[in-house]
Amino acid sequence: MQEQATAHGPGEGRVLDESEWRRRAEAHAARVDAATSAHRARRADGRRHPVEDFLFTYYSFGPAQLRRWHPGAGVGLRGADGSPHREWRFYRRVGDVVALDLEEFEAVRGGTVRFVRALLDATASRPGRFGCFGLHEWAMVYRQSPDDVRHADWPLRLGAAGTDAVVESHRIACSHFDAHRFFTPEAVPRNTLSPSRSRQVQDEQPGCLHAGMDLYKWAHKLVPLVPSELVLDCFELARDIRGLDMRAAPYDLRELGYEPLPIETAEGKVRYAAEQRGFAERGQRLRRRLLDVLDGVAVATDDGASAAAGPTGAVEAGRGAR
């Protein structure tokens, strides 16, 4: 990477030559295109996918937004005249260099930065719990009529009665509010925990699949502060976790290439927990990388105490159905 030091300007000490940042932007676009090609083709044809569409319906960040490359905080781009960033929100130009305007970003998104930092830091500090076995997806269809099932185009592999029996024979311990809020009314009292939006910072733990998927949400909500390569790393983790989430769900998705993981069996539970641990480890590494970005902003803005102070208000949840 060709970086040149500068004593002033929006790059705050790091400036990429135009050839380097264009190379990185093109590499990022190619990586996104490969990751989203199937979704874009289905969208053009009006086809739905119960697994992969989640990344674009629940999380409010489309392929075009994901494709747009941002260098992240503290990196200036030389060749401002040829840079699209000069027209984008939260960027400013000084001479031939364009970069993120941290002061403007902090003024507009400071509350989100503080909330996300507090949430990620608290989650990273806790041990993971690995005994939920993905029962949140079962609780979302518990005692529902066939017409009301969330992914009604796909059969329940144990049928409605068999699905209900799995819920009734297991201890449900869902710690994630944005999964728990989709439980059917009959399933809500079966959860041994009571997650809430106001307790999100206190409740989230790194073993939770949905806390791992939500790293993508927090990363894209902090664009352009977070470099695009890190946002895409979080997207790929969310995509991989979603696969496990739906293989362990009550649906039969073998037609789509998802072999069921039968969490209702002892063998299935062992396999689920093993995969869950692997995703938790990946999530912790990404969580630390996001925290490094936010800690750097706290230093750059001389606002470390504020950034660590915790949530100042609710951050909107994902908008679509799980």
Rank of each mutant, 00 (worst) to 15 (best):
Q2H: 15
E3V: 03
Q4R: 12
T6C: 12
T6P: 04
H8T: 11
P10A: 06
P10V: 02
R14S: 01
R14A: 01
D17P: 06
E18Q: 15
S19G: 15
W21A: 04
R22N: 01
H28D: 04
A29L: 10
A29D: 12
A30M: 11
R31N: 12
R31E: 14
V32Y: 08
A41K: 01
R42L: 04
R43Y: 01
R48E: 09
P50W: 02
L55D: 13
S60R: 15
F61V: 10
R68D: 15
P71Q: 14
A73Q: 09
V75Y: 10
R78T: 00
H85L: 14
F90M: 14
R92N: 09
G95I: 05
V97A: 06
A99P: 04
E106L: 11
A107M: 09
V108K: 13
T112E: 15
D121F: 05
A122T: 07
T123D: 13
F130G: 14
C132V: 03
F133P: 02
L135K: 01
E137F: 00
W138N: 00
Y142P: 03
Q144F: 10
H151S: 10
D153Q: 12
T163H: 15
T163M: 15
V167S: 11
S169N: 15
I172A: 07
D178M: 09
P185A: 06
E186H: 09
A187F: 04
N191K: 05
L193A: 09
L193Y: 13
V201I: 06
Q202K: 07
P206T: 11
P206M: 12
L209F: 05
G212H: 11
L222S: 08
V231E: 11
L232E: 06
F235Y: 10
F235D: 03
E236D: 13
L237A: 04
L237G: 02
A248S: 07
A249I: 05
A249N: 07
D252C: 08
R254K: 04
L256N: 13
E259F: 05
L261G: 04
T265Y: 12
G268Q: 10
K269F: 05
K269E: 15
Y272N: 08
E275M: 01
Q276L: 01
G283W: 12
L286H: 08
L291M: 11
V297T: 06
A300T: 07
P311M: 06
A317C: 06
G320W: 08
